[in-house]
């Protein structure tokens, strides 16, 4: 399991250009916000956590395309299906590595984004906590949708449609943790994650088996 995880993380680390593109995408979405909403510092300060979360969510959606589609294209997915290692375990490692990669990108860009949006310093630790609890949930849900659509060739728009309904509660709790009292929304985020952690890899494994045979 650990070896799998290390392998997947190394794989993600080798795809530097793609993650750099996603990182730029995140920053560009953040840069667009003041143009769309107006540059008043007070308003940006109030909206900053929500804006960062929307940018993170969009970046997450964009990155999901690479979760299974590439593996299906080069045959790795077939290897995974016939591998003696349980499929759910491989998927778990894959999704964990993906979450780590997104998390790294977000942490790198958090300070610049906070500066651009005039964010309060005391919001930063709360925002980090919501990333820790929220990003894996996004990736786990994204894995389900990715596994369902892997047989389709152009699935980006469909992925968005399938995922946004499920992302809404995560976004609500994450942003309310940053703007108000953090304890209760963080507990909700944690319980969503606790629910998804054991179930999502199994659902993904089942849907990959069902749709790939």
């Amino acid at each position: 399991m650990l070896a799998l995880l290390r392998h997947e993380i190394r794989l993600q680390a080798r795809q530097k250009t793609e993650w750099a593109a996603l990182l730029l995408f995140f920053v560009l979405v953040v840069i667009l916000m003041p143009f769309a909403l107006g540059p008043e510092p007070e308003m940006l300060r109030r909206l900053a956590p929500g804006l960062v979360w929307v940018a993170a969510l969009l970046m997450g959606l964009l990155s999901l395309d690479r979760l299974f589609v590439q593996d299906a294209r080069d045959g790795t997915l077939d290897e995974m299906l016939i591998s003696p290692v349980p499929l759910a375990a491989i998927i778990f490692a894959k999704l964990a590595a993906h979450s780590v990669a997104i998390f790294v990108v977000l942490v790198v860009m958090l300070l610049p984004a906070a500066l651009l949006l005039n964010m309060d310093v005391e919001v930063l630790p709360k925002l980090l906590a919501t990333f820790v609890l929220g990003i894996p949930s996004l990736v786990l849900l994204g894995g389900i949708a990715g596994a369902l659509t892997v047989a389709l060739h152009r699935n980006a728009a469909l992925l968005t449609l399938l995922l946004v309904p499920f992302y809404i509660p995560i976004l609500i709790f994450a942003v309310s943790a940053c703007t108000g009292d953090a304890a209760q929304p963080l507990l909700f985020l944690g319980s969503i994650l606790a629910l998804l952690l054991p179930t999502a890899p199994l659902i993904i494994a089942a849907s990959l088996r069902h749709t790939q045979e």
């Binding site: 369902l148 849907s207 069902h210």
Partner: peptide
Amino acid sequence: RGAKASAI
């Protein structure tokens, strides 16, 4: 396949 994926 469509039937299975959408059922899930």
